[in-house]
């Protein structure tokens, strides 16, 4: 059986309004998906994405609140500015742009995160594993190799 693509999921702790969805993400994520809950998408340091890429993740998904619904007023917008820019850079050095995805969830969305993850997994499957940037070297705070 071919290996499932590895997805690093960064989720802002506010964006899943429905308790059932949050519970699913917290407890029932499959092994190939790793959840990192952040206080806000704006807290996602590009460093995390870089580490995920270098560590061999096939895709990175960032789920946050819709614009205007950010818990911290403008956090999601700041995140988009920062991470889209970083994504362009990743694309330039050879990490396919499609592998980093933003999902903005509306308050009323229920059962959407599962569907989005499944669709993303399917697309990553089609793209195949990402290996060209895998260094297996941990990059720590301040840019030093740990």
């Amino acid at each position: 059986m071919p290996e499932k693509p590895k997805i690093a999921l960064f989720q802002c702790r506010w964006c899943l309004y429905a308790p059932a969805d949050q519970e699913w993400v917290d407890t029932q994520l499959p092994e190939n998906i790793h959840l990192t809950k952040t206080p806000c998408t704006g807290r996602i340091n590009p460093l995390y994405v870089l580490n995920a890429v270098q560590g061999g993740a096939d895709g990175v998904m960032i789920s946050g609140c819709l614009p205007e619904q950010c818990h911290f007023k403008t956090g999601n917008m700041a995140a988009r500015r920062q991470l889209e820019e970083f994504n362009d850079f990743l694309d330039y050095i050879g990490y396919d742009k499609q592998r980093v995805r933003f999902v903005w969830l509306d308050l009323q969305d229920r059962g959407i995160i599962q569907k989005q993850l499944a669709a993303f997994e399917q697309e990553l499957d089609d793209l195949g594993p990402a290996s060209n940037l895998v260094t297996r070297v941990k990059v720590a705070e301040g840019g030093q190799n740990a």
Binding site: P39, G42, R43, N45, G75
Partner: peptide, 10 residues
């Protein structure tokens, strides 16, 4: 401060 952490990321 509301502890969103945006400053930390930036």
């Amino acid at each position: 401060c509301m502890a969103c952490g945006m400053c930390t990321a930036a």
